[in-house]
Design a protein around this nucleic acid. Sequence first.
RNA 1: GGUCUCGUGGCCGAGUGGCUAGGCAGAGCUCUGCAAAAGCUCGUACAGCGGUUCGAAUCCGCUCGAGACCUCCA
Length: 496
Amino acid sequence: MIPPLRVYNTLTREKEVFEPLNAPFVGMYVCGPTVYNDVHLGNVRTFLSFDVMYRYLQHQGYKVRYVRNITDVGHLLDESGEGEDKISRAARLEQLEPMEVVQRYTNRFHEVLSLFNFLPPSIEPTATGHILEQIKLTKALIEKGLAYEVDGSVYFDVNKYNQDHTYGKLSGRNVEELIAGQRELEGQAEKRNSIDFALWKKASPEHIMRWDSPWGPGFPGWHLECTVMSTKYLGERFDIHGGGMDLKFPHHDCEIAQSVGGYGQEPAKYWLHTNMVTINGQKMSKSLGNSILPSELISGKHPLLDQAYSPMIIRFFMLQSHYSSTLDFSNEALKAAQKGYIKLMNGLRIAKELEFTGDSDSKVNEKAQKQVEGLCDNCYRAMNDDFNTAQTIAHLFNLLKKINSIQTGALSPAELGEETFGRMLKTFLSFTEEVLGLKEENRVQPEALIGALLDIYKEAKTSKDYDKVDQIRSSLRNSGIVVKDMKDGIDWAYEE
RNA sequence: GGUCUCGUGGCCGAGUGGCUAGGCAGAGCUCUGCAAAAGCUCGUACAGCGGUUCGAAUCCGCUCGAGACCUCCA
């Protein structure tokens, strides 16, 4: 028996059996990027982890609504004083409209994700598209006495909330310690308490991103957009809420406070957090300036890299570790991943071509059959164990050995029996392509192949081997290519 | 300072009380005109010290080391 899917829930700090609130429907919300600059590999890893979860849940027959937002307003540079909005700042520095900044980096974000073969989410809402909802929730929180207005800004009253609830339960903080540990930051005079966070910020006269509100022109605070958008599309209570570890506090704890305060219940049943990508043992982050961009990895142009790595190599590399572990980037590790990836892709090609050939008198090899069946089960076991892609890949490599053995003739399809043989191929293919989202990348240059063929063509012509000449010409023609014999050389063209 | 995580063979990286992780690199063998691919076999690891246990990499304690969060970050 294969145990059911279990996931590690940050909220309970335990692996729990995954039971959707309304099976077969699953609601999954993942905090997307703030689009003020390019996403780096750490960001990619997070979205990759959830892409695979999305894929696997669908593979298991769930009807998943996957919501991943774009934060395009409200993310402040810091919570102190005149915390400038990140988008506004980028707009000022790049001399663009804020929405131009948003569009530019949203486009690039999408380009990166499609490069890495991510499935698009079901809904990709934006913060600026949900200002009304954010105002509404802010009003509700004020009415309940959980938020207060000061000079056009509105703050969430953490102390008040904490009287009846536990602020910080997700990340395991307690309010007293937080207050004690807070540095005295300038410009926090408006807040009743340093740990209160902004729901709505007054826009200074020069601030470009501004909306009218009951408290005057302003813009919504970070945290609020996720609460509003997740509940709008998934309901006040939904199944999975995900994001990077570094969002646990304060972002996700604030979301919980807003939901509990505003709607009377916690938003998500399961909170899933992905771990960080490190480089030389240190967290890759925008603020530390040690990030590697996907484009730099793909081009190989980065001081830490000594060659280029394709998107699928990176995807494979990342899936070789569990999403809850830190993952360290290094050339050596990437090179090893490249070889492993190619090995798997060679197997994919073979698996697609293999067909069952059974003769009635060949006997079933029960040991091999049992092994293969076990490996197929193990793929599900591994994914059911908190989406353990690393283990899944290990099992796929073991299946690959059987597939390769069949191709070389060391093992015959009949020895497995038609059913097991079919299951082996189906499992291998569906896990590699559908679940892990790995695909073959074109690694050969067609021009070089044509060139090699034309060299042989030329030789055949010189030695007047016209049978071979005709053969080459016709096989190229089958691919839509005509050979051009010219006075002083040979060239080719697409057939018109 | 507070909270927490991690330390696995040459490298990366799963596992988390007894049962082969896997990839890369290395050694040997099979196949092969040569070569490659592929298959088979091999290394026998779990930071250190102590404890619990019939048995621990896995549980507990201590020590050392690395890192994360507590301020923006996926």
